[in-house]
Design a protein around this nucleic acid. Sequence first.
DNA 1: CGAATGCTAACTGTTGACAATTGCCCGTGT
DNA 2: ACACGGGCAATTGTCAACAGTTAGCATTCG
Lengths: 219, 219
Amino acid sequence: MSQLDHKQLWESIADRLREEILDGHLPAGSRLVETDLATRFGVSRGPVRDALADLSRSGLVVDLPRRGTFVASLREEDLAEVYEVRRALEEGAVRMAVARASEEELAEMDRLLSATEAAYHAGPLPAAWEADMAFHRICCRMAGNGRLVELFDQLASQTVLLMRTALAERASLAWTPPVAVHRHIADAIRGRDAEAAVRAVADHYQYTEDRLAGRAKTE
Amino acid sequence: MSQLDHKQLWESIADRLREEILDGHLPAGSRLVETDLATRFGVSRGPVRDALADLSRSGLVVDLPRRGTFVASLREEDLAEVYEVRRALEEGAVRMAVARASEEELAEMDRLLSATEAAYHAGPLPAAWEADMAFHRICCRMAGNGRLVELFDQLASQTVLLMRTALAERASLAWTPPVAVHRHIADAIRGRDAEAAVRAVADHYQYTEDRLAGRAKTE
DNA sequence: CGAATGCTAACTGTTGACAATTGCCCGTGT
DNA sequence: ACACGGGCAATTGTCAACAGTTAGCATTCG
């Protein structure tokens, strides 16, 4: 594992920035000045530019030419877009997972499912959301399609940022992960029932979208 | 439209490189030396790096750290991956398109459909493939989801590169766009029948995958 | 007093150069 | 003849500097 520790400089920077954005340390709309970041990380502007380009690809920052890069401030229509694409992706993912999931992966899925329930009952919501996302991720990984996982990860980070910014504006958006629905998905995959799995994912997202739309209206 | 003609330098370079890769002028596996490209385009290495990073995001080139960037040489398993993700994405896309497609977009779709048939009957296959891809693209655009279109475009360029490299190795992979299946999809969208549209897309990709798998076996 | 214009400061896009690492080639030893 | 090791060229990663552009502010004119 000598080729793996050779992490490119801009990757480390991107990781740290991503972390600071997702944990709210860098609020949405913040301006990211290349020079400042360069001095802060003790490097030149080159790697910083690369890191920002990567974050821009992930949709965590927006890059206005000649004007600078800012932490993305995603709106509710973005939330809807992200969820729509995630639904399409995950419906396909579980169909593939039904055909390919290994026993180890199924066990891992069960473990994450229990973790979600535990976090849900324990109380602190952020932990539950993290577990929720991990469950969705394993669903995509079980599809055995690297490109699909990559796209999901992009959408996942956007979801996290979205939840944070949306939540900062309106606490009423807070939600609890639907563990019961997750279990439907898990059961369908374990039972190798493709149609049921797809339907379970569709229900899941239908529920989520309805919920968000409902909240938006009641506000 | 004074802000649109200010195309970033690296964008123009990326466009030209993408073109040369997709039309086969730069064969798969070619080494792309930053210095050479810089002198060739009359710019510095900076914009070239940005352009290569963008192409790397699209999956058209692979970037080995400290070793260089090469035109991606995609294999048959990559083809399978790309088609799987495209299927998932487009199934979702047509479901949204059924709910949102405007009359103008439907007309555009019909136009592209006719163009595909015309190109198919005219003879030159590359033109037919181009029309085929344009049809798929309008299906995604009708979904009214910018992120989805972006992801589709990435997968589309990979598909083109893939078809070219695969075809160079084995001429037996040549195929003709299934215009009849396209018409099924178009009819379902125009008829606002979501389930039929999804089924039509699924059939389309099932057909394509079977065909590719069959060819691979008979060879 | 408001709006338009010119100035200033700051930041990005781009450039050229330096340093570090990699792969290759050749010589040497077995 | 072949494997191994050292030196060399080539190429990337990184850095510092320059020039163009943009936003903000003061000034001036109507």
